[in-house]
């Protein structure tokens, strides 16, 4: 049970971090560098999962993606598959919960890049795409990596929304935080302790690595 929870968490969290990294950076860029109406409204909506109780977010996800959900019913009708109570649901829950942190970090990191660097790039004949990858991204990379690490941590600790959307099926949707809960409830203290230690060590390692990275970045 421990081993399967660990493996599942690893898979769920890496996928969620990847998804969050791409989408969060894209929305962060939009919010930092583009002017449009209802920008702050969009920011508020994107931040919602950070302030809502996770179970409420999970409930909304069921309303959206469940077999009879607004979107889920069409997926079910077309493919006969529903996301609820699958390991993919854990990925979705973790992604949605970590997303606001990434958007906030990316908006701050990309917003702090002097837009005149981008102006110089345009004046040198480069388009938006090339400018983003060759100028904006490298200059914002430290803030973005910091955002990724926080998102990773948030995804790793995700509990409420996962429980709602993916359930708690050992070996299938039971991630480490859920496994700790179950072990504790069923009186298996040793297992709970062991999992807690793994999570703690992983967290410390991640923070340590980020610090290393950001300090080596001082010279760049």
């Amino acid at each position: 049970m421990i081993w399967s929870a660990f493996k599942l968490s690893l898979r769920v969290v890496s996928l969620a971090t990847l998804l969050v990294g791409v989408t969060g950076t894209a929305f962060g860029f939009l919010l930092a560098k583009r002017e449009f109406r209802a920008k702050e409204l969009l920011d508020s909506v994107l931040t919602l999962p950070m302030v809502l109780p996770p179970t409420v977010t999970g409930y909304y996800l069921i309303l959206l993606l469940g077999r009879r959900g607004w979107l889920g019913r069409y997926i079910y009708r077309m493919t006969g598959w529903s996301v609820a109570f699958t390991w993919e649901a854990a990925v979705i829950a973790a992604t949605v919960m970590a997303f606001p942190i990434m958007v906030k970090s990316a908006r701050a990191a990309i917003g702090s890049v002097d837009s005149r660097y981008e102006m110089v790039s345009f004046s040198l004949g480069k388009g938006e795409f090339e400018t983003f990858f060759r100028v904006t991204l490298p200059l914002a990379i430290r803030g973005l990596v910091a955002g990724l690490v926080l998102s990773f941590a948030r995804a790793l600790g995700e509990f409420g929304a996962t429980l709602m959307l993916a359930g708690n099926i050992p070996g299938k949707t039971q991630t480490m935080p859920l496994a700790i809960y179950e072990a504790f409830i069923s009186g298996d203290d040793r297992e709970a302790q062991f999992l807690a230690v793994i999570l703690t060590v992983t967290s410390v390692a991640v923070i340590y690595l980020t610090n290393l990275l950001s300090h080596s970045g001082d010279r760049a």
């Binding site: 005149r116 660097y117 102006m119 110089v120 760049a220």
Partner: peptide, 20 residues
């Protein structure tokens, strides 16, 4: 015409060399 197609060289008071 968008900036990147104008072929205009721009030099600012702080050089704005790409620091990386």
């Amino acid at each position: 015409v968008p900036m990147r197609h104008r072929e205009v060289g721009f030099v600012f008071q702080d050089s704005l060399l790409f620091p990386h």
